[in-house]
Design a protein around this nucleic acid. Structure first.
Lengths: 118, 118
DNA sequence: TGACGCTATGTCAGATGTGACATATGACCT
DNA sequence: AGGTCATATGTCACATCTGACATAGCGTCA
C-alpha cells in the first residue's frame, strides 16, 4: 500500500462509525483497485480471526504457532494497514486453510452497503 | 517469505527443468503452507501475464500504468520471490481484474503433476 | 481491592520489498 | 553486419513490513 490514498487509521475509524468498506470508496475518492484490495485484506483478516476462534486459540497461542507475536496477530485481525497480504495468507495457510478456502473468502467478500443500523 | 525454506532461485530452476510446484514440495521437504503460498503466487503471476497479453501491452507499457518499472514487471511475471502478493494482487486489480477473478485464479491453481514431457 | 487472561495500540531495529537503472539475451527486420 | 523491440537478470538506495517489547483497557474471579 505504499501509494495508498488513505491515512493510516482512516479506514478503521470510518468502520468504527458503522461503514463497510464498499462505501468508503466513494466517500474518499478511493480508486476502485485500492478499495478492492482493502476489501480483500479485510475478509482475510476476518477469516483468520474466525479460524483462530474455531480452533479455540488465544492471540498469544496463535502467535506462538506462527512464530510471530500477539501484537502482530492483533494487527492482522484488525486489518491494520501495516499488515501485508502475504502475512495474512501464509498465516491462514499455516492454520489449515486451503487455497479453495482462500478463494471462497475472497469471492464472498464483495458486500455493498451503506451505514449500518438506523 | 521471510522464513522460506528455499533459496532465492531454487524454485525457478526446478521449474525450468520441468517440474510444477505441486511436486517441488515433496522434493524439498517444503511445508504444505509454503508450497501452497508459492503456488498461489504463481497463478497470480500467470494471470497477470495473460491479462497483459490480452490487453496488448508490453512490459514497459504495463510498468508505466502501474507506476513501476519493466524489470519489476518481469519479476512479477517470473514469480520472482522478491515480489509480494500485495504487488501481484494490486497490479491485477489495476488492470481490471475483479475480486471474483482473483478467487477463480486461486481456486483453479491447484494442479498436481510430476515432471513434464517424457 | 488486586491479580489474571485476552486483546488493542504505539514504537523501533532489523528484515524484506520496491522502483530505477544497467546490462544481457533473443527475435525480427533491412 | 547493425538496429530496434521485448523480455530477463543483477544491483542498490530507499520505502515498507515484521517481530518484539511496553503499555493500556477490559472483563472475570476471589
Amino acid at each position: 500500500m505504499r501509494k495508498g490514498v488513505m491515512s493510516k487509521g482512516m479506514k478503521e475509524k470510518l468502520e468504527a462509525v458503522g461503514w463497510v468498506v464498499g462505501s468508503v470508496k466513494e466517500f474518499l475518492g478511493l480508486s476502485e483497485a485500492d478499495a478492492v484490495l482493502i476489501a480483500v485484506k479485510l475478509v482475510l483478516s476476518r477469516s483468520l480471526r474466525e479460524r483462530r476462534n474455531k480452533q479455540g486459540l488465544s492471540q498469544v497461542q496463535l502467535a506462538e504457532r506462527l512464530q510471530s507475536s500477539q501484537s502482530r496477530v492483533a494487527k492482522m485481525e484488525a486489518g491494520d494497514p501495516s499488515v501485508s497480504m502475504d502475512l495474512l495468507v501464509s498465516s491462514l495457510l499455516l492454520r489449515g486453510a486451503s487455497s479453495t478456502d482462500l478463494a471462497n473468502a475472497i469471492k464472498g467478500g464483495e458486500k455493498k452497503a451503506g451505514p449500518r443500523a438506523a
